[in-house]
Computed example of a mutant assay.
Amino acid sequence: MATLCSAGRTNHAGLMARNAYESFLNEASAHPAPSKASGTVDGNDVAYGIETENLGDDKDVYPRVQYDAWVLINAAFCRAYGWSAESCGCHKETSIEGKPDPRGPVEGYGTRGRFAFTPKQLRADVEERLKHPASWSPGTTTPAPKPPTTEERLTSLEKRVTALEKKG
């Protein structure tokens, strides 16, 4: 789930290194480490912010559905403005204030079921999504849970009725 929480300027990005900002603006194929020496740009004025909850300790796992939403949102911005995936950046690539995120593995992704989140992988996944229609979904998403059987639904209903009768 994603929630649009502002339709104007927000304080999400902080100061961005000018060299990093320009590499994303120009959709460079390689993004330099942020450098204070290059000057700064108010990232809150020039960048969309997608805040994603995580402890940022390299251990807290991003749920796969959360990561997939992140890719979808970035791809939607790219489609709307005609940008490539190289316009997608993360705090740790732009911040001169030491914002280290994103940090942590993504559930159900990679050869061992997880991978450490990297902006390069995010851009690769956004790029893959941009090759397809907006309605496309990759086959690697987590399958929907099995619906309950009739017996399980009846048992659940009986428990709720019994609980209501006790309250009544």
Results as ranks from 00 to 15, higher is better:
Gly113Glu: 00
Ser29Val: 12
Val71Pro: 02
Thr111Gln: 09
Glu151Phe: 06
Ala69Gln: 10
Pro63Asn: 04
Lys120Gly: 13
Val46Asp: 08
Val126Glu: 00
Arg112Gln: 14
Ala30His: 10
Asp60Cys: 11
Asp125Val: 08
Pro147Gly: 10
Met1Val: 13
Gly8Leu: 03
Glu152Thr: 02
Arg64Ile: 08
Trp136Phe: 12
Ala134Asn: 05
Ala47Glu: 02
Gly43Tyr: 03
Glu51Gly: 11
Lys146Gln: 11
Pro34Phe: 01
Glu53Asn: 05
Arg18Ile: 02
Tyr48Met: 03
Pro34Glu: 12
Ala30Leu: 00
Lys167Tyr: 08
Gly8Cys: 07
Gly14Lys: 03
Val61Lys: 08
Ala163Met: 07
Pro143Leu: 06
Tyr62His: 10
Arg114Phe: 08
Met1Ile: 10
Glu127Trp: 05
Lys131His: 09
Trp136Lys: 14
Phe24Glu: 10
Ala2Phe: 09
His132Pro: 07
Trp70Asp: 14
Ala124Lys: 12
Gly49Gln: 07
Arg103Asn: 09
Lys166Arg: 15
Asp57Tyr: 05
Trp70Pro: 02
Gly43Gln: 13
Thr118Gln: 11
Arg123Cys: 03
Ala30Val: 13
Glu152His: 06
Ala37Leu: 13
Gly110Asn: 03
Ala7His: 08
Lys131Phe: 01
Ala28Gly: 04
Ser135Leu: 08
Ala134Ile: 08
Lys120Arg: 14
Thr142Trp: 07
His91Arg: 03
Asn44His: 03
Gln66Thr: 14
Cys5Ile: 14
Ala76Tyr: 00
